[in-house]
Design a binder for these strands. Structure first.
Lengths: 142, 142
DNA sequence: GCTCAATTATTGATAGCTCAAATATTGATG
DNA sequence: CATCAATATTTGAGCTATCAATAATTGAGC
């Protein structure tokens, strides 16, 4: 335990602040909230997937998943139906409209992240990912 | 622009996820939300400070500041009064009760952050702080 | 001294998130 | 085949956060 207390505190606050500022800015630039974007983004590569599987990937609470997907269904970006093989499950599918939407905002997202990580090199990004994943793992055990 | 797209995306999602998991866990372990904790924590070293100055330090929206401090006043942890020299300002002061509370939960906070950053060395923490601050700066310009 | 822009705080509207409780379905066990 | 634990989703309650609009106060410039 050779490190200073104040660095840990600083980081604790930094995470919260950063995330609070990140969300609204992202939404303003892409027309999608970060969570909705991530959901659609994952759906692109899955074609069909149950809500619970999707939940495990994006790490958002079940309740939030349900509400997001309900709204995305209303917007016409996804379809939802029960799994005939297991009626507990809801299977989600990205519509053509949804695919188009997520495709359209790729450019905005790209320029957003480019700005967000400007002056970062590849090594730094990799190191950042590594550290965040380790923290996430540490937190899970609390 | 020599870095891969998927790393940037991964980080984008990681920040959100991490912060979403961090808040509730912290609150469960310390009886204070991260924001309330930070507010009280800053007040310890200031004795008296205006809400707007406090806002600049913690980087939370004015509206949220007002609501937090109102509740903390009801709880008896802070007092609030108008600045006689400038009636627009509200001056916040930490009560003895508030000081005691923040002192009492220091140990919980400490063991929380120790767990959160376990297996991190000092150099990594410093590097993490540096990168997060740079990102914060980048975001501010968007 | 009056007007007007800037500053500070507050309130209302909206949305996201978590947790806990409720509902429905499945599958295993006796 | 009845029961019961596990799984998947949904709903309700409670927080927190942002943004936008409003109100009160101050200070500068004419």
């Amino acid at each position: 335990m050779g490190y200073s207390v104040s660095e840990q505190e600083q980081l604790l606050f930094l995470f919260k602040t950063l995330s609070n500022q990140l969300g609204p800015k992202f939404e303003k630039n892409t027309q999608f909230s970060l969570s909705r974007f991530e959901l659609l983004y994952q759906l692109v590569q899955f074609e069909e997937i149950s809500q619970s599987s999707l939940q495990k990937i994006v790490n958002i609470d079940h309740a939030a998943i349900t509400r997001h997907l309900k709204q995305l269904e209303i917007d016409g970006y996804v379809t939802r139906r029960r799994n005939p093989k297991d009626n507990r499950e809801t299977i989600v599918h990205l519509t053509e409209e949804g695919r188009q939407q997520i495709f359209n905002c790729q450019k905005d997202k790209q320029s957003f992240t480019n700005q967000m990580f400007s002056h970062f090199n590849d090594k730094e990004l990799k190191s950042l990912i590594d550290m965040l994943q380790r923290i996430q793992k540490n937190i899970k055990e609390i």
